[in-house]
């Protein structure tokens, strides 16, 4: 009788602590592609610091030599998501390859005398920033899974800020671009690049690019983390920068 009672209490505790909701994702291996450069560092930090596990995801990192190979693997279903170059991704989307942007990554800022003289140096670097893509469909595109992936990358951003030398990233040297991180997919930044590359064709609807940027998932992930840590300064800073549709309703009034 006592054993039964203890077992019941243990099972109830397990359910209440939230171990169960993550179990389905934990069982499934999530394959995340990345480039071996500084821009993909948030993915590597999330793995190193256990942030994917914190979000209930079991992740295997898959290294790629270039974005084209990574995007092809994403299209073929060999990986579930990938952190690749934004310029390559935008061009692929314009060609009808239905990738979605779910999170940001490394952004490059030009330094040195040439950068000061020629704005094209920075423009080129803007296209070499890193963003995280998912395919349009597939088991890994379920909203909850993508929200957890994004939340883990936001956590990784926090770790990178608290511990800048967390990875031996090898960034230094005169005239080398500076990498800073931003986990947001930020629609308006992507829109600027989209326009600069003149990728909008007359046949595309006006919201073609917006349909490929899941900014609301980033907002959901941020909200979720902020609910747990409302006083976290880094999360507040990210929230202040994000352009999210505001929450409207008393939680207990949601019938659906």
């Amino acid at each position: 009788m006592i054993r039964l009672l203890v077992t019941t209490v243990l099972m109830a505790t397990l359910l209440l602590t939230g171990a169960a909701p993550g179990s389905a994702d934990q069982e499934r291996l999530f394959r995340l592609g990345y480039l071996d450069n500084l821009g993909s560092a948030l993915c590597r930090i999330a793995q190193l610091k256990g942030h994917f596990a914190q979000e209930g995801l079991k992740v295997a990192l898959v290294r790629f030599g270039d974005s084209q190979g990574g995007l092809a693997a994403l299209e073929q279903g060999n990986i579930d998501a990938g952190a690749f170059l934004v310029g390559e991704g935008l061009r692929a989307i314009a060609q009808g390859r239905g990738f979605r942007f779910v999170a940001g990554g490394g952004l490059l800022t030009a330094t040195g005398p040439l950068a000061e003289l020629d704005s094209r140096v920075q423009q080129q670097l803007d296209l070499s920033g890193t963003v995280v893509f998912i395919p349009a469909t597939g088991p890994a595109t379920e909203k909850e899974t993508v929200t957890r992936l994004t939340a883990a990358l936001i956590r990784a951003y926090g770790s990178s800020r608290q511990q800048p030398d967390i990875l031996p990233l090898g960034q230094s040297g005169a005239d080398q671009p500076i990498t800073r991180f931003d986990p947001s997919p930020e629609y308006y930044r992507l829109e600027r690049l989209w326009k600069r590359l003149a990728l909008q064709s007359p046949a595309m609807p006006a919201d073609f690019l917006a349909n490929h940027v899941y900014e609301e998932i980033y907002c959901d992930a941020l909200d979720r983390l902020l609910e747990d840590s409302p006083d976290d300064k880094l999360l507040q800073e990210l929230s202040a920068r994000a352009v999210c549709v505001p929450d409207c309703c008393p939680k207990n009034k949601n019938p659906k």
Binding site: V245, P246, C249, N254, P255
Partner: peptide, 29 residues
């Protein structure tokens, strides 16, 4: 009834609704 403006706007965009009232900011964005 929707629990959030974002969900409501997504339903409108997906043509699951013909009309929506989800604040002013959300439709403007």
């Amino acid at each position: 009834q929707f629990g959030s403006a974002a969900e409501g706007m997504a339903a409108l965009k997906a043509e699951k609704l013909d009309v929506g009232t989800f604040g002013t900011t959300a439709p403007l964005l």
